[in-house]
């Protein structure tokens, strides 16, 4: 099967203080139809920017190079009606539904607007589908909710509306940008379960962006870990979780609080995360915080090399392989 989404050497530069600074420094990704890929990293690692680049929602003045192909067609050069047609195939679920849904329009308008504008459905068909999808995301009284305004719904409910509306146009790819981060913990689990279930039922491909490695691993077939605008490790979620190949992945896994072991303090990763434009040119971006850093790490930037069915960006991968800790089984 050919890939639904192929990203090759994607570089995005944003104007910061008058100069163009890189926020993505050569992303390579491949996503099959129906596959779920987790994109994990700290704030500023470029995970949201990757999703924005795919959906062509980059800030004004952004400069993109490299290639993004959806179903074989290049999307970085799409304009006008072609771009709108592409965006129907890709739906985005944003982090904060409260600010991402127009506060002065009714829920029904929000859900049906796009499909009506595209001319794929009549208002009546769209309303019927909206009611059906609200039921699917387990919202009670869906017919009545259509007449409500966003501020009359809770955050969790609003995020479910967002998910339902993302499915309105029958997309093939879902970009979920931290869909549960803004919700409280009990709601998070419920919303995540609904999202996962609907995605599987419909055979949707998904890029799931989160800073929670274990959540990504639980929901996604494969997981990619990003650091300073690059992918530092990508593999099956199982492999990432139990047998990390990159010291950063290992550090992320170990900095999670655990229920079964009493620790005097949490293991935090020393130092500050690096913005991608602060990343050194001829060195590993993580070297400054890496407990395994050696001379080789600061003299050359490691390439992403294929190992164990995945890939990692570490100069010492051969020495460290099998010694890094993941989640114990």
């Amino acid at each position: 099967m050919s890939a639904l989404l192929e990203i090759d050497d994607l570089v995005v530069r944003l104007p910061v203080g008058g100069a163009l600074r890189p926020v993505l420094r050569g992303i390579d990704l491949r996503l099959d139809a129906g596959e779920a890929l987790g994109l994990v990293g700290e704030s500023g690692s470029g995970k949201s920017m990757t999703a924005r680049a795919i959906d062509r929602l980059l800030p004004r003045g952004a400069e993109t190079s490299g290639s993004i192909r959806f179903d074989g067609d290049e999307v970085t050069t799409l304009r006008g009606a072609d771009l709108r047609r592409f965006r129907r195939e890709v739906s985005m679920v944003f982090q904060d539904p409260r600010s991402h849904i127009n506060p002065v329009r009714r829920i029904g308008d929000f859900m049906t607007e796009a499909v009506i504008a595209h001319g794929t459905m009549s208002r009546r068909e769209a309303t019927a589908l909206a009611i059906e999808l609200l039921g699917a995301v387990r919202i009670t009284n869906p017919t009545e909710r259509l007449h409500r305004f966003p501020h009359e719904l809770s955050g969790g409910m609003l995020q479910r509306v967002m998910i339902a509306s993302a499915l309105m146009g029958s997309p093939r790819l879902l970009l979920a940008d931290e869909p549960t981060t803004a919700l409280d913990v009990t709601t998070q689990a419920e919303v995540m379960a609904i999202l996962d279930e609907l995605r599987r039922e419909r055979g949707l491909a998904m890029i799931f962006i989160t800073h929670d490695l274990e959540l990504a691993a639980a929901v996604c077939d494969r997981t990619a870990v990003m650091y300073a605008g690059q992918i530092v490790e990508i593999n099956t979620s199982r492999h990432i979780e139990h047998d990390p190949l990159h010291p950063y992945t290992s550090a992320l896994l170990r900095s999670r609080p655990r229920i079964d072991v009493t620790m005097t303090r949490l293991e935090a990763i020393p130092g500050q995360p690096l913005s991608s434009f602060e990343a050194p040119d001829g060195a590993c971006a993580f070297a400054g915080r890496c407990p395994h850093a050696a001379d080789a790490c600061v003299t050359a930037a490691p390439p992403l090399v294929d190992v164990d069915g995945g890939a990692t960006r570490c100069s010492r991968v051969d020495e460290l392989r099998g010694t890094l800790h993941g989640v114990d089984t």
């Binding site: 959906d55 929602l57 771009l83 709108r84 047609r85 592409f86 965006r87 129907r88 890709v90 739906s91 985005m92 944003f94 904060d96 600010s99 991402h100 849904i101 127009n102 506060p103 002065v104 329009r105 607007e113 796009a114 504008a117 595209h118 509306s165 146009g169």
Partner: peptide, 26 residues
């Protein structure tokens, strides 16, 4: 610059409708 305008944009709403219903309206 509002986020909900970006949502509408990501749904492929034509610009004129985007401006009328989401920007000017708000």
């Amino acid at each position: 610059g509002r986020e909900h305008v970006q949502t509408a944009e990501s749904r492929g709403i034509p610009r004129r409708q985007l401006v009328r219903r989401h920007v000017v309206r708000n």
